[in-house]
Design a binder for these strands. Structure first.
Lengths: 201, 201
DNA sequence: TTGATTACTGTGATTATATACAGTATAATA
DNA sequence: TATTATACTGTATATAATCACAGTAATCAA
């Protein structure tokens, strides 16, 4: 799928805004009028070009027959158990997907992770809660991080970090800290916890 | 806004499914074809009737000019502080609204209530969390209830209930139970807690 | 029993719309 | 250098689509 030119993008945007505001696609004449073309054929040819690049489909003979070829939003994946070895977001780990609810939580969430165990109860994170994970947030001391140590994925508070030692703190007095030497053992920060969802039964 | 007849509802449903599946509204001929009318005018007249009842708008002269008059989904209200005296869902209490994200939490949520104080930390409910409240769930012993005692709204676990005494338990050892005699003091159960949202900053 | 509403058929004029064909001009690509 | 893609104007036309007018028939309320 090649990229659109600026002008083509303008027309695609116009189609989208037309759909959003009026609930129906524009006609060639609509497009020409809005963008100041003196011929509706200018719009026609742009539409053909955009169709050729795969962004829309044109229904032959149908008025306003412009269909957006949007890849559907699958929703945010919910990760249950992480299979040993593979990446967290591997297909086999995805328990289900829940619809992108923008604004329901304020932060950008890349995926939800179902909490196993009670190592974080002292900060109110319980077994079976879903924590919202942001993959790109900077990992800072004091924040709750999702870390992969070897093949295991764990959620802990980052207590301290240096090139020689990383300390992860369990927020439960019955657990002790995890200390890792990153030069010896592999530790990867998969993201930080930015939100939480809980269902009461 | 009067109700639609069965036939009119069928046509409204057809318009909706057409919009969903094809991304554009149907023509009169489309409607006639789908429902087996031999005249497109049958569709035309149904559309006029539906417009008259307020469910759609028809753009004069425009092809496929059918616009759904859907009252927009305001979203689930988030209640911050509850003003003394009035009902919880009073306009002045609504902090904001967050979009209906069906399936994000499994239970039906009538509104979110922002948690004040730390009386429920032992079950992982913290200050500023949003608890999802269902108004109609049966109030049972052991469930977390939203109760109004006089003019104050509080979230507690229902410990026991009888005609002579209601006991509400704070899930924090620093707080003591609240005991109410419903024959003397007014207690109203506003709902039960069925979900929880938390933002990490 | 008159009128209004619902639920259609049937016809046709008018206009809205898609779309082909013929150009002009510029910039990038092979 | 020829070719292709972009970005239009301008004209024309077949057909897609709205929408008005004229009916038929059944149901229901005043």
């Amino acid at each position: 799928m090649k990229g659109l030119t600026d002008r083509q993008q303008e027309i695609l945007d116009l189609i989208k805004s037309n759909l959003e505001e009026n609930g129906l696609p524009p006609t060639r004449a609509d497009i020409a009028r809005t963008l100041g073309f003196k011929s509706p054929n200018a719009a026609e040819q742009h539409l053909r070009a955009i169709e050729k690049k795969g962004f829309i489909s044109i229904l032959a003979g149908a008025s306003r027959g412009i269909i957006l070829n949007t890849e559907e939003d699958l929703g945010i994946p919910v990760i249950g158990l992480v299979a040993a070895g593979g990446p967290i977001l591997a297909q086999e780990n995805i328990e289900k997907r829940i619809p992108q609810a923008q604004n329901i939580l304020s932060n950008k969430i890349d995926y939800y992770l179902r909490v196993k165990g009670d190592s974080m109860v002292d900060v109110g994170i319980y077994e079976n809660d879903l924590i919202g994970v942001n993959k790109n947030n900077p990992v800072k001391v004091g924040s709750i991080v999702i870390a992969r140590i070897g093949e295991e994925v764990t959620v802990k508070t980052l207590e301290s970090i240096s090139s020689k030692q990383v300390v992860l703190k369990a927020e439960n007095s019955e657990y002790s800290n995890i200390e890792i030497n990153p030069e010896k053992d592999e530790i990867v920060f998969e993201g930080t916890c930015v939100g939480l969802l809980r269902d009461f039964s």
